[in-house]
Design a protein around this nucleic acid. Structure first.
Lengths: 337, 337
DNA sequence: ATGAAAGCGCTAACAG
DNA sequence: CTGTTAGCGCTTTCAT
């Protein structure tokens, strides 16, 4: 005696029976594969609708695709990444693909675990953001499935990449700060593991070092390390101010860090300029007025998805696309009037 | 001739052969099910390590669990939700479960589609946030799998709920604004579909209406509708100021909206108080100094996960837990000194 | 244009 | 304690 109240969801077999055709036929209609008459298509579609049929992705995964794109993200709180995902979402809109996000659990092996989770779940493609995953390890983890890495300048890699021109962006910030008369400029960035390679943060750090040196301020170089998020950035600058407040400006590796710095500065009596990177939405709030480098996050996310879809459709050479950043100079205009 | 460079990933069968046992034995070891000798466990674990074996979730899904919890989110940019997810992530840390997020594509049927995508992917449980999904539709969509809805005051529902006391929180904001002498208080909230039911935003709206009426300011009631996000909130208040700037305070349905309002106010010459809800991290930034109602997002997310796990382990009665919010009064202290 | 049948990698009875 | 076996719901040759 089966419970009539909660029937088992319909399977492809139920649909086939209802439509009076074979399972194979239903499968073909779903994927609009070659070789189905209009009459059959109609009957099958009707049956699917009547039974409220939804294909089980897991079963599909056993034979073919899952129509799922996985995005790995190191920090959900980072508004730049949020924009990237929004762009990716928009690019996927109207396609048969669904986007799912695996957030990297802060701490353990950062990102790799999330990427593996995605691969275990048989996604058709991966958009990865974590700066710390070693290229070799990455390729091994994903096996053969298409990947695009955002923010990695690995132009020799087997995977696609989408980046901003971090060297140019950093140079524009440094030039701006130099122009304001700053020399003792500190750089607030994340952990070593994230900057020792060709990641965005690695490039920004090295460009900072170069520019300081070229400008003759090598002795004023100061790199402050911290974790992800505004709170971490804030704490790091607070500590730096307590410790040795000789710097007059802070260049934050990204806006979340810069906003944290801004907060530490605002809470102290120090008079210190802060610049960031990314131009997250809040950066332009008049009370913050954060000078930063604009990166078109949504476009970058959308482009990444396009690359992924291309790869899934057979392109075999890796592609590498770069976006041009743009310095945005602001000053806090608070309070108004 | 197989390509020796890219071997097919190991299956449970490969492990079984390597360890000289049956597939069932391997399966048992993985799930540490009853009835495995230490010797066998050791050999199997060794074989798994040697072959770098990773179980395919899709295959598991066909028979049992996927060890995956799905989170549906209406707005990735909302920092309160980010905290909720962080809490959920923390609660899941150390368990065998992986968290994945399905972002609701702004627009179409908001949320439902994302929840369905999760169910199609055979998650073991769902944490849903969207305020607009009809309870009946929701239960039908998820079939039998455990769900917890965050922010829905559906105490009669068959699913678990986690909420803040939105009526109390709203009353505290209103009392605060009244105490400051405000009467013409506008309420900035999201679309009708999200407030017509027992969602958090619905409760906040109705409590606002009640309090205004009780205070004798029924004629000053003004409800301003907008979309999700700071930009939307900002645009709505900008338009309201152009249109009819008679209000002296704005109560934002959540901090993202309130911060948008703050921005519109700062950019105008108006002198208008703004209060929000949630206490997102940036709200306490001294340059913003947003008065708001603190909700313990991380704890709420963690609790939601606990409820889910309980349900997955057999609890059959729905549970409903509420958290107490706390008014946080702030003023902008920018510029410093 | 359509259908029959094999099989993807796992788990869950059930036998031994 | 251990192994055998029967599927889960799909996609995909391969016949017809």
């Amino acid at each position: 005696m089966t419970d009539p109240g909660r029937r088992r969801p319909a399977t492809i077999e139920d649909v086939a029976i209802r439509a009076g055709v074979s399972r194979a036929a239903v499968s073909k209609v779903m994927r609009n594969a070659y070789g189905v008459s209009d009459a059959m298509r109609e009957r099958v579609n009707a049956a699917m609708a009547e039974l409220n049929y939804r294909p089980r992705i897991a079963a599909r995964a056993m034979r073919g695709q899952t129509y799922t794109i996985g995005v790995e993200i190191p920090d959900l709180g980072n508004q730049f990444l949020t924009r990237v995902v929004d762009g990716a979402l928009a690019a996927l809109s109207g396609t048969a693909y669904q986007l799912i996000i695996a957030p990297a659990e802060a701490g353990t092996r950062e990102g790799l675990k999330a990427i593996e989770a995605l691969v275990d779940r048989a996604v058709d493609g991966v958009l990865a953001v974590s700066p710390r995953v070693d290229p070799w390890v990455l390729e091994r983890a994903v096996g053969g499935i298409p990947v695009v890495m955002l923010g990695r300048h690995d132009n020799d890699a087997n995977y696609d990449t989408v980046v901003g021109d971090d060297a140019a962006g950093t140079r524009s910030v440094m030039a701006h700060l130099f122009g304001l008369g700053h020399r003792r400029i500190a750089h607030l960035t994340i952990d070593e593991a994230s900057t020792e390679n060709r990641s965005a943060h690695g490039i920004r750090l090295r460009t900072y070092l170069e520019e300081m040196t070229l400008a003759g301020f090598a002795n004023d170089i100061r790199v402050i390390r911290t974790g992800e998020g505004q709170a971490a950035g804030s704490a790091a600058i607070r500590a730096a101010l307590d410790d040795d407040p000789t710097f007059t400006a802070v260049f934050g590796g990204h806006d979340e860090l810069a906003i944290g710095a801004l907060r530490a500065v605002a809470e102290s009596s120090a008079h210190i300029a802060v610049a960031g990177y990314d131009d997250v939405p809040i950066a332009s709030h008049p009370a913050l007025g954060l000078t930063t480098v604009r990166q078109p996050g949504a476009e970058m996310g959308a482009r990444a998805i396009e690359l992924l879809l291309e790869r899934m459709n057979g392109r075999d050479r890796a592609a590498h696309v770069a976006f041009t950043p743009e310095l945005v100079v602001r000053t806090s205009t608070f309070p108004p009037g």
